[in-house]
């Protein structure tokens, strides 16, 4: 069953057309991640779902109710803000229970639900602290706790982890994943971090410049990106793109396609070989990064961007050496002159 339906949603700020004809369906209980570069309109879309921004045109439907004209408080949603938006003049307990206070719930119920949420997030000992006396991670937990107490139909997150340090970010990411499994509530999560998107999402919506580029499961998007933008956005290091007429490229005719303008290959899908005529691409190593678990080569093959290769383990090949690269046919992505993926090749 669908939880949220977006029907040709448009958003204009005065003359600026920020979101163009967005149509999406989110299923009940699904964890959907909206991902895209900064400024592409993710937050705006999320805020329209929350009811904080009016919809310029189109229908916003929860279940089978059109909610365009509903106030945020009537939408049965909870939202975790990037800035956490904790009420500075209330202690943690009151922050958590504020929504129940507004709905005039009995003190006993309030107590029970706040302590339940505090228990889930390990906030029991902080209940009488004020936000200014909390660390970043603790504030983040309170913000999530506030959403949990609500027990809403839909959870909304706007880059909730981007103010945390790297270690805490991973910890909280796992916590959010657990939370989703435990509550089973529909969650819409905005981020510009593709790792968060890949690890958390049931389905990812990739956005760019106010439009949806592609929707799918993380692995689907990884293996079958619909266009150059999605292919380049997901995956780290980024997918390599090589022009069809690049002199360094030496593909056997079985792998080529006459309408392909660009060939894409992920760094982790490349086999390093001798720089002989069997190699599909030849170049010189410019930079080497040894991460321990992997080694990353940046190869100069005559184009302005280096060609990136990732091999597992520690590889001792040195800077300045000439190497060859080989690809498996199923790992090669072909894009036409409009940047759209050519899919027959895959099927064939």
């Amino acid at each position: 069953m669908t939880a949220i339906t977006l029907n040709s949603i448009n958003k204009r700020f005065g003359p600026v057309h920020v979101l163009k004809d967005i149509s999406l369906e989110f299923n009940k209980g699904e964890f959907v991640v909206l991902v895209g570069p900064s400024g592409c309109g993710k937050s705006t879309l999320l805020r329209m779902i929350a009811g904080l921004e009016p919809v310029s045109a189109g229908d916003m439907i929860f279940g089978d109710t059109r909610v365009n004209d509903l106030e945020p408080r009537d939408r049965d949603i909870a939202m975790v803000f990037q800035s956490y938006a904790l009420y500075p003049h209330m202690d943690v307990e009151r922050n958590l229970g504020f929504s129940l206070e507004l709905r005039k719930r009995a003190a006993a119920e309030k107590k029970e639900r706040t302590s339940h949420a505090a228990g889930i997030l390990g906030l029991d000992k902080l209940l009488d602290r004020f936000p200014r006396a909390l660390s970043g991670g603790q504030r983040q937990r309170v913000a999530m706790g506030r959403a949990i107490v609500r027990d809403p139909q839909i959870f909304l997150f706007d880059e909730p982890l981007s103010n945390l340090d790297a270690a805490l970010r991973i910890e909280m990411r796992i916590e959010i994943a657990k939370l989703h499994r435990r509550l089973g509530t529909t969650m819409v999560y905005v981020t510009h971090d593709q790792v968060e998107a890949m690890t958390l999402a049931d389905r990812i919506v990739v956005m760019n410049a106010g439009q949806v580029e592609q929707v799918g499961t993380p692995l689907d998007l990884y293996s079958n990106p619909a266009n150059l933008f999605v292919a380049g956005f997901l995956g780290s290091p980024k997918m390599n793109f090589v022009a069809y007429d690049d002199p360094a490229l030496n593909l056997p005719s079985a792998l080529t396609n006459p309408s392909a303008q660009t060939y894409g290959i992920r760094p982790e899908h490349i086999k390093v070989t001798a720089p002989d005529k069997n190699a599909h691409l030849v170049g010189t190593i410019d930079v080497v990064e040894r991460l321990g678990s992997d080694t990353i080569f940046y190869i100069n093959h005559g184009a302005d961007k280096p060609f990136v290769v990732r091999v597992p383990g520690i590889d001792r090949t040195a800077i300045g050496e000439k190497i060859g690269c080989q690809f498996q046919p199923e790992d090669l992505h072909l894009f036409d002159q409009d940047g759209q993926a050519i899919s027959e090749h895959k099927n064939g």
């Binding site: 904080l52 938006a85 504020f98 507004l102």
Partner: peptide
């Protein structure tokens, strides 16, 4: 963000003004 959070928590714009913004 504070009053938006309050409006999601169940405030009207006016109660958000009274309970969250006003004390601050």
């Amino acid at each position: 963000d504070l009053e938006e959070a309050a409006m999601i928590d169940g405030c009207t714009r006016f109660t958000a003004l009274r309970k969250v913004i006003f004390p601050l």
